[in-house]
Design a protein around this nucleic acid. Sequence first.
DNA 1: CCTACCGATCGGTAGG
DNA 2: CCTACCGATCGGTAGG
Lengths: 228, 228
Amino acid sequence: MSLADPELLPAADVPRRPRGRPRKTADERDDGNRRQELINGAARLFRQQGFAGTTTRDIAAAVGMRSGSPFYHFESKEALLGAVMLEGMRGALQRQQAALALLPAKVCARERLRALVRNHFDVLLGPDSDFIPVMLYEWRSVNPAQRSEINRLKDRYEADWVPELQALHAQGALGSEPVLARLMIFGALNWSAQWYVPPSGRSAKARARASLDELTTSALQLFLKETT
Amino acid sequence: MSLADPELLPAADVPRRPRGRPRKTADERDDGNRRQELINGAARLFRQQGFAGTTTRDIAAAVGMRSGSPFYHFESKEALLGAVMLEGMRGALQRQQAALALLPAKVCARERLRALVRNHFDVLLGPDSDFIPVMLYEWRSVNPAQRSEINRLKDRYEADWVPELQALHAQGALGSEPVLARLMIFGALNWSAQWYVPPSGRSAKARARASLDELTTSALQLFLKETT
DNA sequence: CCTACCGATCGGTAGG
DNA sequence: CCTACCGATCGGTAGG
């Protein structure tokens, strides 16, 4: 009688891996990938269901793990939320600075603001746009230590808007004082995460829906006065 | 020996209530009050901690009940959330229509919009202003049946804005098409629930903070063009 | 990263 | 509206 499963014993004719080769080959997923998958899955679920309404089991299942495994990568559910927000804010800042860098040297404040608004819509509504909405709507759930790290990035992100708003206010194109104007403009843009449905297919309904370019144009028409 | 507690036996000299008087006297709290206390407490906690982050025990404790008692008044936690939103929206609509009714008959669209914006800030940021922020930020947690009832009120609330926005657009004071303008303006206003801190005391900081009147003026300056 | 589990807590209920 | 309770689920962990 044999209690041992034969498959547990090495078969003599199985080809051996080349000697000296380490455990991981190039196409084996490494830890960094799994961690990133957790962040992506958490971002999607936190956005759909909220932070408190999402269980760590939901997140584990979304990336094909067992319930305890996310805690191999993250200390706590809270730390995972912080990672989502941090990655979102890093990406947003990076894309914003790239968008500004692409602008011609002497472009006017109005066109610089257009680039900022267009990028912000992309960050909020474009592909992979779960991160920033999670940051905006789950802010109270992140712990103070991570909050201040994220706040530093948020301050830099907003700082890029200030000179443009000041210039536009000085030339009479912005009707409100820059600090309040910034709060209200961010409000108008951020709120779009609640109502925007991306155009899909070629139905009449889809064609009627605004693209991000059109949204940008409308927003600028609403906020800025003509200055001829 | 007496196992009976003497206090459980009626004392002969205790004055009797007038015959024929029903159980409740005028100053006894009735069920309606307790229900209302639950709604108020839930509104405050849902706003501070979110719906999923608030337990029914938290709510019970906030009004001095035991953990099971809220379910005497409400079928479920979800039903309590719906009641908060419904009451919030009823109040908001009522106050909006009262504010419009107070306006002189032939006042211009700009002044009617000012009244709407001012009332909306009051609904969002004034006294007892937890209800509408809960509605705005916990929308996904309310069940479909209550959602549609609340939506009917929301539609009426927003409908009051449309003719003013159309008139202002027609006269060139509103730079964007009315449907999108309404979404962006509501976004700008609703977002204030995230950052507004009411002025309190008489410190320099408090004096620097905007009142709701000042906020209203700034918002109109931002959104509307001059039309002389 | 899985197995197996823990203590705490949750929404909700029966019966009074 | 309270007492006493239930089954389910939750975030997290020890050990491998």
